[in-house]
Design a protein around this nucleic acid. Structure first.
Length: 571
RNA sequence: UACCCCGUGGUGUAAUUGGCAACACAACAGGUUUUGGUCCUGUCGUUUCAGGUUCGAGUCCUGGCGGGGUAACCA
């Protein structure tokens, strides 16, 4: 990944900035240390282990970039492994969307696509191994009893009455669990560790539960399923993972992770490291809450452009490059932090600025009649497609006597620093002439419905007559040539920086921003926009970057989603 | 409550592992500009607090304060 990124950096190689790139995050330092010490035979092998129970979001992107990025950086490998040990929540639909999203982000797992369910037989064998060593036993306690026996943080737990069952008896019971002889939940297999451990994870954790549920890959072959803790580390070991990187909430699980690795005859000894998951202001990141937004109808689906799912961001117009750059910039640490939403927005602006062509589009139209412009005449003007990219060339735009301008670009009573159009004031029509507002026409309600202006022919062709200072430049579209279009203007889904912060009895959806979506159906665009293909990025001058919706756009009738507004020092 | 982790500008990450606190973004103030965009310049911190070790502490030790995680037959 780093090699890929360096191509986009325009700093010359060997510049003083090189020093800044030497900074290593704590994971890079660990890996460098391991490499130097010859740990893991000098290999670096990571994995991205999603549970297929929802769509990937920007937080997963951080993990993906980390795991695949580290592997690339240190000439290692990264596996994709679906952690599918809970058939009640997991579905094939999610497997497919996750694969598509990772590919879209630009990462490749090669032929290393794995499923924890591929290892069910091996994991079963590992469990028997523990039983035979007297390190695991079948317990008959009910869920409630087990909770009570576990104790609390302050008080130690008590041993289950079945804890000292003979290994032979546990082995037989475990086999009968697999054979389906017991009801769901009737028995579990537990590790025999320490019911008095201050770490709750070590108080004889459950390894297997009885669960009659159809698995999306193994079907009905199993009625017992391994728990995460028992499955994850052993799967890592089977795949020869060296650095098993997960989020901070698994920190307390690490002693258990190591306990299994140390007590089972696994083929390799991976190590677990934890980092802080990504939090973004004005967003919720938990899968549960994202599901609720979808199922509660607060958004149109997982790919609603207001969602921070990868499919939502993609549809909004975010590029893979911008997301990777963002993930690189937020860094990795071992303490919780919340990144400002403006960082994400900035990363897409930075990515699109040099490559999105400019066009003029009037979103909320107001008619302007240029009274001294000859009726029926059309003048062709030349406009630059992208000032950041000379190779993008130019295009012709037509000017006629009647044009549309943005309602926001006219004020009857203009404030001091307002340098757009107002009665008696002059403004430049971008790439065309300067016009002066001579009259304001209103309807019966006093609403401005049309402006009368005159233009100055001496200001055309890039000319600036002596002593004339026209600060304002506004965009416009010829009324005779304009095409109509639907444009969706998006804003933050939530109106407060931390939607998770709710008052007693409140709910995060209370913070939903009622103005997060505005659909504009009366927009007037310059004619060159008529056949914009779905999935195209374009900048509407002075307004923002827009993306032709890949789903709702029709041939000749594109629908535009606002990816992000341009930065503005006005308003 | 118990155990574990963590506190560096508004935000996020650095600090050659004990040696003048750096970079990016935001904000604010200027400059350039036919996009109030882009670009350029400047401003913004006695490293959570109190002790201790040391010639020297963001870094090591002790304690306080603050934040987070966990206490599922979820992952």
């Amino acid at each position: 990944m780093s090699a890929d990124h360096s191509k986009h950096d325009d700093e010359p190689a060997g510049s003083p900035e090189k020093d800044a790139e030497e900074h290593r995050n704590f994971l890079e330092q660990i890996i460098e240390h391991d490499l130097a010490a010859g740990t893991h035979e000098g290999r670096v092998h990571t994995r991205f282990p999603p549970e297929p129970n929802g769509y990937l979001h920007i937080g997963h992107a951080k993990s993906i970039c980390l795991n695949f990025g580290l592997a690339e950086q240190f000439d290692g490998l990264c596996n994709l492994r679906f952690d599918d040990t809970n058939p009640t929540k997991e579905e094939l639909e999610y497997v497919e969307s996750i694969k598509a999203d990772i590919r879209w982000l630009g990462f490749d797992w090669g032929d290393r696509l794995y499923f924890t369910s591929d290892y069910f037989e091996e994991l079963y064998g590992f469990a028997r191994e523990l039983i035979e060593q007297g390190l695991a036993y079948v317990d008959d306690l009910s869920l409630e009893e087990m909770r009570e026996y576990r104790g609390s943080g302050a008080a130690p737990g008590r041993n289950s009455p079945h804890r000292d069952r003979a290994p032979e008896e546990s082995r037989e019971l475990f086999e009968r669990m697999r054979a389906g002889e017991f009801e769901d939940g009737a028995r579990v297999l537990r590790a025999k560790i320490d019911m008095a451990s201050p770490n709750m994870n070590m108080r004889d954790p459950v390894l297997y539960r009885i669960l009659r549920a159809h698995h999306h890959r193994t079907g009905d072959a199993w009625c017992i399923y391994p728990m995460y803790d028992f499955a994850h580390g052993q799967s890592d070991a089977i795949e020869g993972i060296t650095h098993s990187i997960c989020t901070l909430e698994f920190e307390n699980h690490r002693p258990l992770y190591d306990w299994f690795i140390d007590n089972i005859s696994v083929p390799s000894h991976p190590r677990q490291y934890e980092f802080a998951r990504l939090n973004l202001s004005y967003c919720v990141m938990s899968k549960r809450k994202l599901v609720e937004l979808v199922q509660g109808g607060h958004v149109s689906g997982w790919d609603d452009p207001r969602m921070i799912t990868l499919s939502g961001l993609r549809r909004r117009g975010y590029t893979p490059e911008s997301i990777r750059k963002f993930c690189e910039r937020v860094g990795v640490a071992r303490f919780y932090s919340t990144i400002e939403m403006s960082w994400l927005e900035d990363s897409i602006r930075a990515d699109l600025n040099p490559r999105a062509e400019r066009r003029m589009a009037v979103l909320r139209p107001l008619k302007v009649v240029i009274e001294n412009f000859p009726e029926g005449e059309t003048e062709e003007l030349e406009a630059i497609n992208n000032p950041e990219d000379p190779n993008a060339g130019t295009r012709k735009i037509p000017l006629t006597r009647e044009v549309w301008i943005e309602r926001d670009d006219f004020r009857e009573d203009a404030p001091r620093k307002y340098f757009r159009l107002a009665p008696g004031k002059e403004v430049r029509l971008r790439y065309a002439y300067c016009i002066t507002c001579t009259d304001v026409i209103k309807d019966a309600e006093g609403e401005v419905i049309e402006l009368r202006c005159t233009y100055d022919p001496a200001t055309g062709g890039g000319k600036k007559p002596e002593g004339r200072k026209v600060k304002g430049v506004i965009h416009w579209v010829s009324a005779a040539h304009a095409i109509g279009a639907k444009v969706r203007v998006y804003d933050h889904l939530f109106s407060v920086p931390d939607p998770n912060d709710v008052e007693e009895g409140g709910h995060f959806t209370d913070h939903l921003n009622p103005d997060s979506l505005e659909v504009l159906t009366d927009c007037r665009l310059e004619p060159s926009l008529a056949d914009t293909a779905p999935g195209c990025h374009v900048q509407f001058e002075r307004q923002g970057y827009f993306f032709t919706d890949p789903i709702d756009s029709q041939p000749g009738a594109p629908v535009f989603n606002r990816t992000v507004a341009l930065r503005s020092s006005w308003k």
